[in-house]
């Protein structure tokens, strides 16, 4: 259809799917024992009734979100994340359910940085964060080569500033 927005061309690195899976696994591996301890403490010290109910609800939600997060979520996140950089604009389209499309002029970018957490390091990935006057935009998982190249490109274009700043 011609009333749809053009889709930005670039995607995240393919191995970002694996990285996202891994980070979900680790997250759950930390959270589940905590939940188990809470269940134990609740039974041991006879806390109020509603605490038990809340815990069961939390457990239910955790299991549901785990099923989603460990199966299709990483793939959907990867599939729906697109970005594009040219002389004038940085464009980012993201979001599985709620689609968000941002358009940032290069002249308004104040800083750009790459960063790497432990999981990203394991897969040789880098995140890119672009700061503007209003917020920080992140492109989370790129291969090293692309991340560095993109950082330099953005930094080069962003050097040009408008008169009124």
């Amino acid at each position: 259809m011609d009333i749809d927005l053009p889709i930005p061309k670039q995607r995240l690195s393919k191995s970002s799917i694996k990285a996202m899976l891994m980070s979900e696994l680790i997250g759950n591996a930390i959270w589940l024992p905590i939940l188990a301890i809470l269940f134990y403490v609740d039974a041991r010290f006879d806390w109020w009734d509603w605490v038990g109910w809340v815990l069961w609800v939390v457990l239910g939600l955790t299991i549901l979100s785990m099923i989603y997060a460990l199966t299709i979520q990483p793939y959907l996140l990867y599939k729906n994340f697109r970005y594009e950089v040219d002389e004038e604009f940085l464009q980012i389209k993201q979001g599985v359910f709620i689609e968000k499309y941002e358009l940032v002029p290069m002249t308004k970018i104040q800083s750009v940085a790459t960063n790497q957490g432990p999981i990203q390091r394991r897969y040789g990935l880098y995140g890119l964060s672009v700061e503007t006057m209003s917020s920080t935009h992140t492109i989370p998982m790129l291969s090293k080569e692309i991340a560095m190249q993109l950082r330099n490109t953005i930094a080069y274009y962003a050097k040009i500033k408008e008169v009124d700043e």
Binding site: I3, D4, E88, Y101, L103, T107, D164
Partner: peptide, 22 residues
């Protein structure tokens, strides 16, 4: 409407020709 969303996007894309660069 979606058609306006596209118009809005295209409108903003034309920004480059108007700004004064340092």
């Amino acid at each position: 409407p979606e058609s306006f969303r596209l118009a809005f996007y295209q409108w903003y894309k034309k920004r480059g020709s108007e700004i004064e660069l340092k």
